[in-house]
Nucleic acid binder design. Structure first.
Lengths: 201, 201
DNA sequence: GCACTTAACTAACGACCGTTAGTTTGTGTT
DNA sequence: AACACAAACTAACGGTCGTTAGTTAAGTGC
């Protein structure tokens, strides 16, 4: 068994991290034991340590993977689009898509980051703060150009970021509307709530 | 020590539950030990059991206390107001105020209810489902009367309920805007996003 | 075929978990 | 002064936690 790739779905470590994300989502970080995780992976608990350094490392991988995706995205969005309101919509749509298609990872990074330990905890908090700040700056810019009505930008950011986490309920609900319809409804409600009523555009 | 009331802030059990809410908020239910809790209350862990039956009971008290407050409120709101959009605004304002002034309890009931065990888990999920359903019905009613624009009502509910949980970030942020300003901004963004553009009212 | 590496295993460590049993302490009532 | 009793204490229970040590099996490259 000297293969570094075990199945076609990436390395064993990647499998472990994905399984951990699922369990952390289902039961929470603290309530998930390494023995739970091992069982789901199909291995003894001690064997996990051939692939990972610690339980904390699993949470770190999940949180920073997700955080980086958002950071990379806002970079792109900020350069591609011209109007602030377009940027906001693009950011919102990305959040929605991540919440739909990479649900477990995003959920864990949103809800369980508190169990990170320093220095990772501080790094993570910093990265999120910077992201929210940048998001707020885009909204400020939109307000100045009269694309977006007068409002407290950080509050608008907070509403958007948390509104999308409501997709959690969508995932849990028995009879769901389609992902596309969900996205369009969310964008409509949230983006229309921002637009200036006297917008020229 | 034969007093049933220990301080002026209610019974010892109430103190324990409030302290538990604070710790469950800070560290999560699973990561909070009875010894942690005891230390914060100023007592040995075993002594807690003179006042409570189990750790689970603490979570139950918190979750159902909060859930009942929302249930009672929607009852009142539904009878007091006439227009659907007014009902929605009243519900939203109540959620915001609860999130500001009873933050820890609401947060715990929102985030840690998964650690309830049956039959409490099922009861809680049912109560929340009924509440959301009722909220959605009010919005449907508003759509029918053209107070609220065409949209998927459950999605609107999900956005509102989760948007207010963003007040978590407000609590954590260093320089906050005032509670009043926060409420007005949130109401503006969210309620304006719902209103029909051809509303007669 | 032999060395090397990877990844599984069993066994166990010390720490901490929620909770119970049994006892002591202190206070208000008679 | 004696009693009742709430509420604190100490000690310990069986269990589970994350993790380490040491070993074994199996595939790779010479």
């Amino acid at each position: 068994m000297a293969k570094i790739k075990s199945t076609k779905n990436g390395t064993k470590k990647e499998i472990i991290v994905e399984t951990a994300a699922r369990l952390f989502h289902e039961k929470g970080f603290s309530a998930t034991s390494m023995r739970d995780l091992a069982e789901q992976v199909g291995v003894e608990a001690a064997s996990l340590y051939n692939h990972i350094r610690s339980k904390s490392e699993l949470l770190q991988e999940i949180c920073f993977k997700v955080a980086n995706e958002f950071t990379v995205n806002i970079e792109q969005v900020d350069t591609i689009h011209q109007y602030a309101i377009e940027k906001v919509e693009a950011l919102l749509r990305f959040h929605i898509k991540q919440m739909i298609y990479r649900y477990e990872n995003v959920y864990v990074s949103d809800r369980e980051w508190k169990h990170l330990t320093d220095p990772y905890l501080s790094d993570y908090q910093h990265q999120r703060r910077v992201y929210r700040k940048r998001f707020a700056t885009i909204i400020e810019e939109g307000i100045k150009k009269n694309e977006i009505k007068q409002m407290d930008a950080p509050t608008a950011v907070l509403i958007m970021l948390h509104a999308v986490s409501g997709i959690e309920s969508w995932h849990r609900s028995r009879k769901k509307i389609s992902a596309e319809l969900l996205e369009e409804n969310m964008v409509m409600i949230l983006v229309e709530g921002l637009k200036s009523s006297t917008a020229f555009k």
